[in-house]
Design a protein around this nucleic acid. Sequence first.
DNA 1: ACCTGAACACCGTTCAAGT
DNA 2: ACCTGAACACCGTTCAAGT
Lengths: 189, 189
Amino acid sequence: MAVPAPSRTSLDAIVRSGRAVLDDEGIDALTMQRVAAAVGVRAPSLYKHVRDRDALIRLIAADVVRDLGALLHAAAATGDPRTDLVAIAHEFRAWARAHPGGYALLFSRVPDAWITPGPDADAIEPLLRTAAALAGPDHALEAARTVVAWASGFIGMELAGAFRMGGDVDAAFGWGIEHLAAAIAAPAR
Amino acid sequence: MAVPAPSRTSLDAIVRSGRAVLDDEGIDALTMQRVAAAVGVRAPSLYKHVRDRDALIRLIAADVVRDLGALLHAAAATGDPRTDLVAIAHEFRAWARAHPGGYALLFSRVPDAWITPGPDADAIEPLLRTAAALAGPDHALEAARTVVAWASGFIGMELAGAFRMGGDVDAAFGWGIEHLAAAIAAPAR
DNA sequence: ACCTGAACACCGTTCAAGT
DNA sequence: ACCTGAACACCGTTCAAGT
């Protein structure tokens, strides 16, 4: 009876529901109507909480980066850079396979949260630290970019079904990260 | 006066126009109406030549793979596997930057033409050959997958604007391919 | 102050009707 | 035998009107 119309939903609920729809049904199913229905409201009401569909996707992406960052921090635990690098890569792949919808957002829209530090954010800090330990401070950025590029390319191809020439995909991932770890720790020749 | 209604367009013209729209204006501009207009016809007429929009995109993707394959074959010319591998990678990146719309199709829809051999197709044959020469026949597939994963990830991130921590992106690409070439030619440790 | 139905501009796709 | 306008089902988004 106090305020005229208390919110029947919230930005938090919208982002959470949107992320669930994305991971369960894919990006094409992430419509304003679908999200609105998931939070018990009509599509136009979402615009009271979010600028437009693109802004909603960015909010979901930031949420995804936050979770992934916490995971990668936890994965780099031993202090041995080579062990940590391999662990980060495997953890990243396992997470991507479990959340393909959210994963696709990481490299299509490139959320600002990738870089902007935050509470437990700065998702790639463990990777930069590990890469610096292996390649030396002068080549930390190149080394980290090489690993991220390889991992994102591998996982992207895997999720797109691009590995159709047979062979053991798990083994190929292991082969790749082992050789990469060795490569960035050594001069080019 | 002979046949009732001779075709005012053709599958070839549709694919060619569609590809031009894709490279010039991006995937979102690749609508049936836009392609129809480019070819001088109304949208419903396209369905006489192509099953639906998805089929048109696949046809464009196959066309893209054919061109790229010819390019990569020409790039692997010296016979020295290490030189050829580096040349293939740089040629691939240059082509991707010139045709970002077509490039995105290579790893999102994964055209069958990637594998299916054809006239001058089998676009990745030069890479497989070079990788086999460097890594040995037992690890040719893993090595080729490692290089493709890295290159596609790097280029994907570059085109998405993901490299925002400074540094020389050209240098990072060169650093990466040199270290990769060394890595796949050596045992993991 | 938030929610809603109605409306608008846009898609992809189908289909009966033209020639 | 191909092309077309009209129609349908769907989007995202805006807005005046409700409470």
